[in-house]
Amino acid sequence: MPQVTLTVNGRQHTVDVEGRTLLVELLREKLGLTGTHVGCDTSQCGACVVHVNGESVKSCTMLALQADGDSVTTIEGLAAADGTLHPMQEMFREHHALQCGFCTPGMVMTAIDLVNAHPSGLTEKEIREGLEGNLCRCTGYHNIVKAIAAAHPLMHAKAAE
């Protein structure tokens, strides 16, 4: 059986997989990281978004073997060791940007990448367009947009420290 070696949330793993094993299956079923969700089978809902080498990727649309040697960050890897939430997580909570929580991990991972990619600022329109690949059925997106706008200065202030 093929093996894949990758770093997930800072920890290196070597895992036996099949050729067809998806990255999300490796995370959920082999590593027990069930925070990353599967909400569709056509690569549209974005519940499975993780970061691969710092960029948002749909982990349901990537083979585990493609991630060999890569560094993966999931929702479980965002908070500090002492439990302090990432500013994006904190702003989602502050602005009630989640209800059922199912789309939330993917939404947060996408949002962080979006903010990272736009250091000089994000308009409401850019945020809404940046969420193109993430579906939420609960919130109507209103508070998600607010949370991301609020997280932007916090994240870039932190980066400037």
Partner: peptide
């Protein structure tokens, strides 16, 4: 094309 996550791959 697609969305940001799709564009990364």
């Amino acid at each position: 094309i697609g969305d940001e996550a799709v564009r990364h791959r």
